[in-house]
Design a protein around this nucleic acid. Structure first.
Length: 402
RNA sequence: GCACAGGUGGGUGAGUGGUUAAAGCCAACAGACUGUAAAUCUGUCCCUCCUAGCGAGGUACGAAGGUUCGAAUCCUUCCCUGUGCA
């Protein structure tokens, strides 16, 4: 059986649930830190655990180029290779079809990329992307899609959406035939999970029999900024049938209100009892808002990338730690934050580390930003559990006063 | 003392008669960042003024003088730095 999803509490449109994966249970709504090349940049795995990261992302395209799927597979899949016992989700490389647009050639069969590392040529198809993702062995893998650019005219969006739909079918077909080839298929119960399994209630455990767990393949809804095409894409993807659905193709340059509008309207067409994954968002305010709309999973490079660039998210708003005004600031980065960075270091020190180009700046900044994001989601889950839907009504959610 | 080589904007360093307020890099200051080609990218970076512009003035390439329509660039003297020889 693949991943299973159990909704506990519903508050307004928001849901608090549990995603049971071969590598542990994930409480939703969840924020998933991005670890493109088998590393959440600047943060060691043990620290991610300490921060409470339940599931992280990896990227098929990057890992395929380096170190190569075969290497990762022989090292026990991504979990074994990067020594991460908890859940992992891999992106199929569909986003690279979008972001590497100058290095690729697209046909119905698939995409030819020129490697950004050495210029060599590589072909990705729904089938090869599935083969690679099975080799990487993430708990959740994604259909190979085309992330439509913005702006795009309606015909272009339709064509792109239809391509994604055809690729979704091919992704699923290949996956169904080969899903038993995961690197960890022989280990009946991955060691890291056994402890957590005890905490899974009977209702959830009922789904589990002696059959080893397999990966889950999620479908992706495209359709640009067109509500009607989004609806059509959702229906077609659901018809193919997946254990979870992602909303892709957003945060590609469109205005924020439009993102929200498309998210909201697309969610209406997705199954209520299955996980919904909004790909590639957002700011702390945005992820709270999307959770309130009924999104269960989100990922974003923003907290990690912004941290490396000196932009920190705090309960009082954004702090650009490189600014001269912090040069002699004794105070903690975020007085309202209990992370190990805020407990220990001053803004003046963090600014100095950044200005001096010390690697520690990246480490500490990233730890804080991730801590802030994960903490934010933890509180969102808590609010949903308490049925505090009023917090979400306006789309603005305020942190409970201590 | 003599002989070479040099002295350029906060630093470094191009530029050897005119599109040069002076390249590039660094520092400084500000901004961006949303399924990661990102420890990246963008802007500002002599002063003053305004109708805020590939705008107007002023000051500036060690110092002072000179040649020239025009000098960071050529000449003279002086000052300073480095190296070598006494």
């Amino acid at each position: 059986m693949p991943v299973s999803f159990h909704i506990g509490k519903v508050s307004g449109k928001a849901r608090a649930g549990r995603l049971v994966t071969p590598h542990g249970e994930v409480e939703t709504p969840v924020f998933m830190p991005v670890g493109t090349q088998a590393s959440v940049k600047a943060v060691p795995q043990e620290t991610l655990e300490e921060l409470g990261a339940q599931i992280i992302l990896g990227n098929t395209y990057h890992l395929y180029l380096r170190p190569g799927i075969d290497t990762v597979r022989r090292m026990g899949g991504l979990h074994g290779f990067m020594a991460w016992p908890r859940a992992i989700l891999t992106d199929s490389g569909g986003f690279q079809v979008f972001s590497l647009n100058e290095l690729r050639k697209l046909t119905d069969e698939g995409v030819t990329f020129r490697s950004h590392l050495d210029g060599s040529s590589h072909f990705f198809s729904p089938e090869s992307a599935m083969e690679a993702q099975i080799g990487l062995g993430a708990d959740i893998i994604m259909a190979f899609d085309e992330c439509t650019e913005y702006p795009a005219d309606r015909e272009r969006v339709r064509t792109s959406m239809e391509l994604t739909a055809r690729w979704a079918t091919r992704s699923k077909n290949y996956f169904e035939e080969h899903k038993q080839e995961v690197p960890w298929k022989n280990s009946r119960q991955p060691s890291a999970v056994s402890r957590q399994e005890k905490q899974i209630p009977r209702s959830a455990r009922n789904d589990m029999n002696d059959e080893p767990m397999t990966q889950a393949l999620f479908g992706i809804v495209q359709g640009g900024m067109d509500r009607e095409l989004r609806r059509e894409s959702a229906l077609r993807t659901i018809e193919i049938g997946f254990p979870g659905y992602a909303i892709g193709g957003l945060s590609v340059g469109e205005p924020r209100e439009l993102t929200r509008e498309i998210v909201e309207s697309t969610l209406e067409h997705l199954p209520k009892d299955q996980p919904r994954y909004l790909m590639g968002v957002g700011t702390p305010e945005e992820i709270v808002e999307y959770a309130s709309l009924g999104v269960d999973m989100m990922d974003c490079v923003l907290p990690t990338r912004a941290a490396r660039h000196g932009l920190l998210f705090t309960s009082e708003g954004k702090v650009s730690i490189k600014q001269a005004r912090y040069a002699q600031d004794h105070s903690a980065l975020d007085p309202g934050c209990a992370c190990r960075v805020c407990r220990r270091y001053s803004r003046a020190y963090l600014r100095h580390l950044y200005a001096s180009n010390e690697v520690l700046a990246q480490v500490l900044n990233t730890i804080h930003n991730l801590s802030f994001y994960l903490d934010t989601m933890r509180q969102v889950r808590h609010s949903i559990q308490l049925g505090e839907e009023s917090r979400f009504v306006s789309g603005v959610w305020s942190r409970p006063k201590p």
